[in-house]
Design a protein around this nucleic acid. Structure first.
Length: 237
DNA sequence: GCGACAG
DNA sequence: ATCTTGTCGC
């Protein structure tokens, strides 16, 4: 995997909203929803947090053993924040730091769990889909709230779900990952189908609402501890 | 024109 | 995302 070129060729925030949206539409056409990911040996969770009043973007990437869901390694990348949060353009704000962190993991993951939407986005390119298209890595978007789309009732038990529909298309799954908790919004990022993404996320959730991969990345990005992956951690700036 | 709006 | 204590529920 040539991270150097991936990071260099990644779309950069130009300060032009219309232009950024146009880029998203182009990349959205490259999204593959075919379940062609390899057997999952190692998976990764990525998430972002901020420091110094938001001036520093802190991205965390945690590698986990796919069969045991136990953390193997963690990396933190800190970069100057490049733009403010603009609904629909989250990837331009967070991907630079996320890609840097991912590139420093000791191994390339077979699947990346991203905090945010996959194709469940106004132009079909949430941060998980964006990450997948430019890295080529299979990815899934796991969000805590809806950006676009609507759905019917969701049962109260773990595994219960409802289709997330937007403009007549099924773009994701509103999935109850644990009994009686607010459901997750799961959508394909890249090289995964709507159904496949939901199954992988459910399998990745053990005793908490969020998948283990996302949970660890969350913790590391928000610089909380929760001892475990911290044994082989690195840091960058 | 008036809301809604991932993190 | 982030600022923040106690508190309701399993």
């Amino acid at each position: 995997m040539d991270w150097k070129s991936v990071i260099e060729s990644a779309p950069v925030w130009s300060g032009n909203v219309a232009k950024a949206r146009a880029v998203q539409s182009e990349l959205a056409a490259c999204v593959s929803l075919v379940d062609d990911y390899p057997p999952l040996r190692v998976i990764a969770g990525v998430d972002v947090g901020f420091e110094d009043n938001g001036t520093i973007t802190r991205a965390a990437a945690v590698l986990l053993d796919a069969s045991t869901l136990v953390p193997i390694a963690q990396v933190v990348a800190r970069l100057p924040t490049c733009m403010p949060y603009i609904p629909g353009l989250l990837s331009f704000r967070e991907l630079p730091a996320v890609l840097q962190a991912l590139s420093e993991l000791p191994q390339v993951p077979d699947m990346v769990f991203v905090d945010g939407q996959g194709i469940a986005h106004p132009r079909g390119l949430g941060i998980a889909a964006h990450l997948g298209v430019i890295t080529g890595l299979p990815a899934i978007g796991v969000a805590k709230t809806i950006l676009v789309g609507s759905h019917g009732a969701v049962g109260e038990r773990r595994g219960d779900r409802a289709e997330l529909v937007y403009q007549g298309r099924v773009i994701g799954t509103v999935l109850r990952s644990k009994d009686r908790v607010k459901p997750l919004i799961v959508s394909p990022g890249y090289r995964v189908s709507v159904a496949g993404a939901a199954e992988l996320v459910l399998a990745g959730c053990t005793r908490y609402r969020l998948p283990e991969a996302t949970r660890w990345a969350d913790r590391v990005a928000s610089r909380r501890g929760g001892s475990s992956p911290s044994l082989f951690g690195r840091e960058t700036e």
